[in-house]
């Protein structure tokens, strides 16, 4: 028997725990949360990126992968565990990649006036590269937060016109931070 592909140890309970971390990340933007470690994931997928895919994606979800993530190992892994359709265009529910590969964000669905929820969740991998200090305000933030975010995050403005917009998870190793459309990011 070959080794099973890396996955949750207990699908139901681990997914529940991971969802709660993801929910907290989005409910309290700018605060770093950490997922449980999963070993041996296909590179260059981070634990956080992979966990978010497992929590939110299935055969009803379309995923966009950044160029460096489009390899057989990553695609096979996503296929095997989620059945999600990997899409070549940006008309998707979920996107994973380095920030340069995902820009411009406004090419992803941002929802419609009647259904602003029909918008993409974007996972920015390796989010500690080329960072700059920003101040964050908005729902879920008690007092103004000062955090280091990728310099190009400021370009998300073009994809947000509240209540329309994209919602972002910043991922690095097993760490995750939420950046919903409601968060105001200023230099």
């Amino acid at each position: 028997m070959t080794n099973p592909l890396p996955f949750f140890q207990d699908q139901s309970k681990d997914a529940a725990r991971a969802f709660r971390i993801a929910l907290k990340a989005m409910a309290m933007p700018g605060k770093i949360q950490n997922f449980q470690v999963i070993d041996g994931l296909p590179t260059p997928l981070s634990i956080a990126g992979a966990t978010l895919i497992l929590v939110f994606c299935d055969f009803n979800t379309k995923i966009f992968l950044g160029e460096t993530f489009r390899n057989k190992n990553v695609e096979d892994w996503i296929n095997f565990y989620t059945g999600a359709k990997i899409s070549g265009d940006k008309n998707v529910d979920f996107a994973v990649g380095h920030i340069e590969e995902l820009l411009p964000f406004h090419e992803f669905p941002i929802g419609t006036d009647e259904y602003p929820d029909r918008s993409a969740n974007i996972v920015i991998e390796n989010a500690s590269k080329d960072v700059k200090s920003f101040s964050l305000n908005g729902p879920g933030i008690k007092e103004t937060l000062h955090v280091e975010l990728p310099e190009k995050i400021i370009e998300r403005e073009s994809a947000i016109s509240f209540p329309l917009g994209v919602d972002i998870f910043l991922a690095k190793e097993n760490f995750v931070m939420g950046l919903p459309r409601t968060t105001m990011v200023e230099t």
């Binding site: 929820d117 729902p139 409601t182």
Partner: peptide
């Protein structure tokens, strides 16, 4: 079913 509800919950949090 849980994934479907969780996707709705995340969007609900993002659009209060």
């Amino acid at each position: 079913t849980k994934r479907m509800i969780r996707r709705a919950l995340i969007k609900a949090i993002c659009i209060p």
